[in-house]
Amino acid sequence: MLALARICEAILPLAYSSAFAIYALAFFRKEEGAARWRRPALVVALLIHTALIYAQTMYHGHCLVYTPFEMLTLISFTITLTYLIVELASGERGTGMFFVGLALLLQTISIMFSPAVEDQSANPVLLNDAVGLHISAALIGYTAFAISAVYGGLYLMLYHQIKSNRFGTFYQRLPSLQLLERMSEKSSIVGVAFLAVAIAIGLIYLPGVLPNFHYYDPKLIVTIAVWAIYASALLAKYVIKLEGRKVVILSLVGFFGTIISMTLINFVLSGFHRFQ
């Protein structure tokens, strides 16, 4: 398993880079070869990623959640998988380059900062069912926010292109504004729902499972703050009919706030949310 994990870890960035390059080629130049090979390339990357997660999970006997950087590989995996499902279901391929690009970025960061597979030690807390559910819900929630951010970013890009009469490649290739807004909004709803589950489990079950649990943990506070931003953006959309563009901006603020605060917390502060 260790050998498989090492091989997959080495070739996964290459696989993602190739898939990204092919999607980019299809996006910018409409190359027939690129259009034909982009999905197979993505499937290959996804298979290698599956093998990596399988090998690491089997080696340790539990899911990869030692550090946020290990979580990133799972987020990267779920982003790719979600995008592939969306592509298969809707036939919409104009946004593929951006999702594969994000997955590549997250995976590269993950591989650069994660400890070597054999250096990681198991924490028995991770075998608890409630913790597993908490982590899974948080993972899906953050992945949904990442997907929402990609759609939101593309929405703003297209909005400004149309407003400023720049009718270039992005204008030609991207789907309509309303579709991008809806995809961003639906992803946010999924994120808010799953993060709510993660927070609820965390607040109800974790105090009994984790001996050093406390309510002032910075990661817990940031998670609740992020959830509140997204929830209020959605509430504003449905209750006070806030315009779609502002909802998207709020969601993006929430997403980048998450990235920055989580990075700071993990480098500067410590708390019970470390499983090493």
Partner: peptide
Amino acid sequence: SETELFAGAVSISYVAVELAKKIFH
């Protein structure tokens, strides 16, 4: 299918329709 030769509207009325399709869904 392999080039952009047919892409983008080239008459005013079609451009308006294309623009509407880029905004609404």
